[in-house]
């Protein structure tokens, strides 16, 4: 016979009490950590990506009450800032001549010789886009975010996202004419 637990929260409350905030946080982690890792991994080494996930969710925990109901864009936005801070930090170290370790390749590797494959040509084309446009179209194509979500991630107006997206498409279409 099936036993209906009156809500997972309730079932546990009867057993041992629940730190509801922590549980909700863990659910958010379960649902979003993979995407946040993917975002970071596309832009950093695996080791760095794991650090970025860790720092991002630590921020999320501290500001959990501010997390929107759909937390993914917020989390990617936070991951983006974490990455940017790490880059700035690395750059400062370089400027001071205190290069503590070899810097990872912070951009996706674009092998100049890899123009014989479609994939290589697309990556090269992406690399030539203005940073703002490239970021928007990558978030749409790779992170599969809507323009509204991209606006949240980048903290810019939705209209700006549409403009950048449009321009990025136009530039890429011109550069990849042979592929289309």
């Amino acid at each position: 016979m099936n036993v209906v637990q009156r809500g997972a929260l309730t079932a546990v409350a009867e057993i041992d009490g629940v730190d509801e905030r922590a549980v909700r946080f863990e659910a958010v982690f379960a649902a979003c950590s993979k995407v946040v890792f993917a975002y970071a991994r596309r832009r950093a080494t695996r080791e760095e990506a794991e650090d970025v996930v860790s720092e991002t969710f630590l921020v999320a925990w501290r500001r959990f009450d501010e997390l929107p109901s759909d937390p993914l864009p917020w989390l990617i936005g936070a991951a983006r800032k974490v990455l940017a801070n790490r880059r700035r930090s690395d750059e400062r170290r370089v400027a001071l001549g205190v290069r503590l370790r070899s810097l990872p390749d912070t951009s996706r590797s674009v092998d100049p010789g890899d123009t014989w494959t479609t994939e290589g040509r697309v990556r090269t084309a992406l690399a030539t886009l203005p940073a703002g446009e490239r970021e928007v179209i990558e978030l749409v194509a790779w992170e599969e975010l809507s323009p509204a979500e991209v606006a949240t991630v980048l903290e810019i107006a939705r209209a700006t996202v549409y403009v950048r997206l449009h321009r990025a498409r136009q530039r890429l279409a011109r550069m990849l004419e042979e592929e289309l």
């Binding site: 794991e50 860790s54 590797s109 697309v122």
Partner: peptide, 30 residues
């Protein structure tokens, strides 16, 4: 078609992503 091309150029290794999602490393981060 353009978006398909860009998705096809995604540098992410899906196998790596899958393995990370099921890895102890992910649990460790949590």
């Amino acid at each position: 078609e353009l978006m398909s091309l860009i998705r096809g150029a995604d540098p992410l290794d899906q196998d790596e992503l899958r393995s990370w999602a099921a890895s102890e490393a992910r649990e460790r981060v949590l």
